[in-house]
Nucleic acid binder design. Sequence first.
DNA 1: AATTATCTATCTATCAATAGATAATTATAT
DNA 2: ATATAATTATCTATTGATAGATAGATAATT
Lengths: 192, 192
Amino acid sequence: MENKRIEILKTAQSMIQKGGYNSFSFRGIADAVKIKSSSVHYYYKKKEDLVVAVVEYYTNNFMDSLEEKKNNSSDPNSDMIEIYIKVFTESFNKNKNMCLCGLLGSEINYLPESIRDKIKIFFARNIDWLVNVYSEKGINKKDAIRKSKTLLGLLEGAMILNQTMENDFTFDYLNNIPYIKSVLENDDLLKN
Amino acid sequence: MENKRIEILKTAQSMIQKGGYNSFSFRGIADAVKIKSSSVHYYYKKKEDLVVAVVEYYTNNFMDSLEEKKNNSSDPNSDMIEIYIKVFTESFNKNKNMCLCGLLGSEINYLPESIRDKIKIFFARNIDWLVNVYSEKGINKKDAIRKSKTLLGLLEGAMILNQTMENDFTFDYLNNIPYIKSVLENDDLLKN
DNA sequence: AATTATCTATCTATCAATAGATAATTATAT
DNA sequence: ATATAATTATCTATTGATAGATAGATAATT
């Protein structure tokens, strides 16, 4: 018996992660959390408001689990990049759900501005977090930004490929963390 | 004055590329191509059938432009990987539309199986094309597959980031072809 | 203690708009 | 005349959204 508002957010998040903004309805959520659709409107007046709240909720949870995994790491020398990749992949492996903001980002041109803004914040906060890690490794700002966005893009794209080609094992590189790390460790060798 | 069937396909493709499967309607397409919605049903009985046709149409056009660019290349030594990246980025830059199958792939768990199958085919044909290129470069099969899927994933993810962060110039690495190439040229240095 | 007022969470009932889809009909063209 | 292309008209289901009512809890006032 959970807080209804949170139940709604969780249900909406999972539904959006399957099919995007238009793949869920107030009634669908109402049925899932066992209230009437008008009661969902009581918590979130418009659909846009609900999705804004979902993206915020998702972003905060995501950043929280980054910090949590960082602090709970038994190995003091554990690599933060590895931790970052793990947060993505473990979440993906758990429920086979695409990253919420990766999905919504792909349909960004269709979404209301208030939602677009929240998705931008998700990506900006991720890049910030990664740039910070790379900077602490002594990498200069420009390179850190490049590496960060490459890693994030690689992960988002990998999830799309992975869930699409689920039966084709040759596509399963999302869980090969040493490989992904090596890509980013050598991405500047040939830069010009 | 074009073939109506093709007009419908083009319109549907562009609408799907903005917001996915649920972001367009028969009436929306009908208005755009100036016929009635029932006439769209004449060409494509169900929405599912229409989207299947759109993905096929998109895939064939994409593979055709790969071959075309390959043959029309003035420089006989031009790198096929560079050509591949260019086909993606030039298409993206032209109309700022996300890759159709990248978008639909992100909502794959929501789509009917017939559509899922066509999206898989798009990715499979892309991987095949790339594996072939890498193989001709003397790279072994296993590494060629790894490089191919990494490149494809990187590009799909890059498009999401790029269209989401459109105003943030620091995210614009999609057009840095030498950089993207360097990532894939060095991805196996640290493999273990 | 009793009353009044307010707030929260929910409901019923309903709206107009839009959705996908179909049948029957008409127009056009080879 | 037959096949193709398009129409009108309509159906049912679903959508997001709103208005109004109700029950219960809490707080403030008498």
